[in-house]
Structure formats: structure tokens, C-alpha cells
Design a protein around this nucleic acid. Structure first.
Length: 431
RNA sequence: UCCCCAGUAGCUCAGUUGGCAGAGCAGAUGGCUGUUAACCAUCGGGUCCGCGGUUCGAGUCCGUGCUGGGGAGCCA
């Protein structure tokens, strides 16, 4: 007798095995009964035939409720009628626990109800598929940087000041008389890391206390943020492009089954190849105006603007060189055009919008000081950051990729709240 | 912060002109030797979001508060 998991069941045809898991569904036709179980690796159907097993075990079926934990022993049989192609003809059914009445039915539920039961919702097949793809995305991204000689350098989550200075921060007490802020980006620390290790990245949660209520926002979300010394804007655009292509290819090869569960149109992902199109902000503004949008130069693009621009391409598209007024203080001025900074955003297709934002960083201490002042931030609180420009300042650049938005796009699901195990939203801190 | 929508059984929802509170699913009980969200029969299940008002009478109309959802702004 082998204790196995469902993902490997095909290797055991004709053998007696034991599965452990949870009851997903049961159907009875009298003396032939079916139960569908999941074990975390897959789903399998178990058949109980009264005449072919111990009656005591057969009758245990009656007391089973949804999500009861069970162990089943039986022979693996190939059967096209079973979901997955294999089923277990049971000889034993052992119960670990009879579950209380399970709140999530295989029928429809409202979003609020499901989010209240997120700790249980994770068990359903669609959520399983999304979170497995999230795993692949993070693994592929980290492997991408590891393979290129980047050092993983974890950024702090509690910080003394704003990193970007503009967005709202979560505040918390830090012992007596001090305040800590939850990090909204690891970038400034990655810049310090790049001066020490040349190529670094971090991957972790970031926090923004913005009262945003859209399908693209969470108050706690994950970013992967590389930073590279002696790099300029084209360098990190190239890096971004290979990263995205690598991630999509990895999901296509590792998660076919999950993409099928989600009903994702895979052809939309199969076209994601180098090179990506690239538009300057100026050109993007002209595109919008040609479409009849009365867009004012100097403003940032709204959601509908991004959708309109990215809708013209079937691959992700870069928009670069935005007006300095709409961007944070650390971005480097474009030497060829005043009022513009050397930055880029990557917009995902199908209306998903911005998934990456990055820039060359200002390396001149005096200009950086001026930019801090212009942003209404005091250079004193950023003195450690200004040190990086005093002791061997070099050109450097980096970007941040939003994990949840990337996963939402790859999965083709409308809202980022399903792409993280326990979403934190404007009105939701539970469970 | 602003705009729009919703709140009725455990869940998803219907409820007509203001006139006895409803369905499907889930649950319980029984039946069925190949079910796929099985099927058939029977049964139990309600603070109609809270408060105030109009009315002979309010789930329904009015006011107000709360909660949730969608969108805008801002952002990844």
C-alpha cells in the first residue's frame, strides 16, 4: 500500500494506494456512491461499491459533509467517466474529522461573502489556479535575477520617512516618541545596495494608505524591485522586457492546467515576445489627441487613457520620458529635453494598464537636493540617501514590477484582489 | 474625498399599484448499482440592514445613518 498524492496518481494504475485529503463533493446512487476529494495537489473521484467493500467503511459515507477530512484506500483505475481520467475503487474509508456545515457552496456567491471567507475560498479550484500562477510568477522573476548575477537584498518594511514623498503612508508607533512608516517601496534602499553590490533586487510587500477603490489597487501589495549601477534608461527597459517575456513563457510551460481552469485565452500570452513597442510620453499624448481625448500635456495618464493606448498593441508597451511634474523627486532629468525625466512605465495589454514603473535615478547631489526641495521634502531627513551621491556617485537605474497586476493580467482576471492570498483593501482587513 | 448601485432564509436572488414573506441551491429524512453542480419525494429554515416619518396598513414611499460593491482621482 502506497500513500500518494493525486498529482502522481497516473503512475499507480492497478495498484492499491491511500489518498488523504478533503471532500469536495458527493453523489450517491444507492449502492454505488461517489465522492470527489482534493488533496492540495489535485482532484480525484473515489467510487464506493457496496458489494466490493467492507460494509462498515461503506456506511461511513453517509456521515460525510463537505470539506470533511478523510483517508481513502483503494485501487487506481483508469476511467474516462472520472474527472482527471483516474478514479479510486475504494476498499477503506477513514474519517479524520466530520466538517461543520461548510459555508461555500459550489454555486455562485457574492464578492463580499467570498472575501469574508477568504481563508476557505483559497480551497476552490479557481483560487488554487490563480495562486499557483502567482507562485510561478515570483519564482520565475527571482530566478531571472539570480541567473543574471543579482543579489537578493531585503528592504526594510518599517521606515523612518516616505520613500516617494507623495503617497499616503501607514503610520505605527515605534516605541516611545518615534513613528515608523510602512514601506511603500524598497527602491531607495536598493539604490544603496546597488552602490555596494552593483546589481540587486528585493521582493516583498509594500503599503500605501490610499483610499483607492479600483480593480487595480490593494493597500498591501508585492513588488519586485531591481536596481543596477552603471545602467541607464534603455538598459532597464531591456531588462524589463526580458523579465516579462521570461515570466510569461514560464507560466505557459508550467501552468497550462491552471490557465485552462481559468478559461484564459492562451493565444494572448503566446504572442508575448521581444521586442515590445515603445512610445514617448509626447507621442502617447498625440495618440490620445488623435483619438479625440482632450489631453493636457504635463498630466499623468488615467485608467481610460492607459486602456486606450495599450489597446492599440497586443504586447505590453513602454511609455517613457514623462513630465517631471507628474513624477517623484529621484528621477533623473532628460538632458535632451527640459521638464522631462528619464522614466518608463510598462502597460500590459487587454486594458490591464501599468505593471512596471522605473527610471534612471538622479546622481548629481545638487540637482537631487533641489528636487527634494521642489517636492517639499527636507534634505535632512534624506541625508543617508544623499550620501550615496557623495561617495562615488554613478549613473544607475531600476524599476518595480507589481506582482498582483502582473498575475491578474496573465490570469486574465478582472480584479487584483484574487491574485494575493489575503488581500488588504480600503474597507477590508479581515481575515 | 466625490459620483453611481445594492442590502429580503446559511448562499444567490424574486417580490406587481402600498394589502397574508417567496423560489432555486445548501441542510435534514427516505429512495435509487455509474454519478459528473446527479435525480425523485418529504421536512425545517426570516430582526425584509438600523433609526425616524407618511399611511387604516410599509419589504415596497420619504428622510437619515451604517455596511458592501462599481467607478473617478492617485498609483504598481
Amino acid at each position: 500500500m502506497n500513500t500518494i498524492t493525486i498529482d502522481t496518481i497516473g503512475q499507480y494504475e492497478g495498484e492499491t494506494v491511500t489518498l488523504s485529503g478533503w471532500l469536495v463533493h458527493k453523489r450517491s446512487s444507492g449502492k454505488v456512491r461517489f465522492l470527489v476529494m482534493r488533496d492540495g495537489t489535485g482532484i480525484a473521484q473515489v467510487t464506493l461499491v457496496k458489494s466490493e467493500m467492507d460494509e462498515k467503511h461503506f456506511e461511513r459515507y453517509d456521515s460525510l459533509t463537505l470539506e470533511s477530512s478523510i483517508m481513502v484506500t483503494g485501487v487506481v483505475k483508469k476511467d474516462d467517466r472520472a474527472p482527471g481520467g483516474y478514479e479510486i475503487l475504494a476498499s477503506q474509508l477513514n474519517i479524520l474529522q466530520i466538517a461543520e456545515e461548510y459555508p461555500i457552496a459550489p454555486k455562485e456567491h457574492g464578492v463580499g461573502f467570498l472575501l469574508d471567507h477568504r481563508h476557505l475560498w483559497l480551497r476552490s479550484s479557481k483560487q488554487h489556479a490563480v495562486l499557483r500562477i502567482r507562485h510561478t510568477v515570483i519564482q520565475a522573476a527571482r530566478r531571472f535575477f539570480d541567473d543574471r548575477g543579482f543579489i537578493l537584498l531585503d528592504a526594510p518594511i518599517m521606515t523612518p520617512v516616505a520613500c516617494e514623498g507623495t503617497t499616503t503612508l501607514f503610520k505605527t508607533d515605534y516605541f516611545e516618541e518615534q513613528t515608523a512608516y510602512l514601506s511603500q517601496s524598497g527602491q531607495l534602499y536598493m539604490e544603496a545596495g546597488a552602490m555596494a553590490f552593483r546589481k540587486v533586487y528585493c521582493c516583498g510587500p509594500t503599503f500605501r494608505a490610499e483610499k483607492s477603490k479600483t480593480r487595480r489597487h490593494l493597500t498591501e501589495f508585492w513588488m519586485i524591485e531591481p536596481e543596477v549601477a552603471f545602467a541607464d534608461l534603455p538598459d532597464i527597459m531591456e531588462l524589463t522586457e526580458s523579465l516579462i517575456v521570461t515570466i510569461v513563457k514560464e507560466v505557459l510551460s508550467s501552468n497550462r492546467e491552471e490557465l485552462r481552469t481559468l478559461g484564459r485565452d492562451v493565444s494572448k500570452l503566446e504572442v508575448i515576445e521581444s521586442p515590445f513597442e515603445s512610445l514617448s510620453y509626447d507621442r502617447a499624448v498625440r495618440v490620445l489627441r488623435n483619438e479625440g481625448v482632450p489631453f493636457e500635456w504635463g498630466k499623468d495618464f488615467g485608467g481610460s487613457d492607459e486602456t486606450l493606448i495599450s489597446g492599440r498593441f497586443e504586447k505590453p508597451v513602454f511609455i517613457h520620458r514623462y513630465p517631471a511634474s507628474s513624477k517623484p523627486f529621484y528621477m533623473k532629468n532628460d538632458p535632451e529635453k527640459s521638464g522631462v525625466v528619464l522614466c518608463m512605465d510598462l502597460l500590459a495589454p487587454e486594458g490591464y494598464g501599468e505593471i512596471v514603473g522605473g527610471s534612471a535615478r538622479e546622481e548629481d547631489p545638487e540637482i537631487l537636493c533641489q528636487k527634494l526641495n521642489d517636492a517639499g521634502l527636507s534634505p535632512e531627513t534624506f541625508s543617508w540617501y544623499l550620501d550615496l551621491r557623495k561617495y562615488g556617485s554613478v549613473p544607475h537605474a531600476g524599476f518595480g514590477m507589481g506582482i498582483e497586476r502582473t498575475v491578474a493580467w496573465i490570469c486574465g482576471i478582472p480584479h487584483v484582489r484574487e491574485t494575493i492570498p489575503f488581500p488588504r483593501l480600503l474597507q477590508r482587513l479581515y481575515p
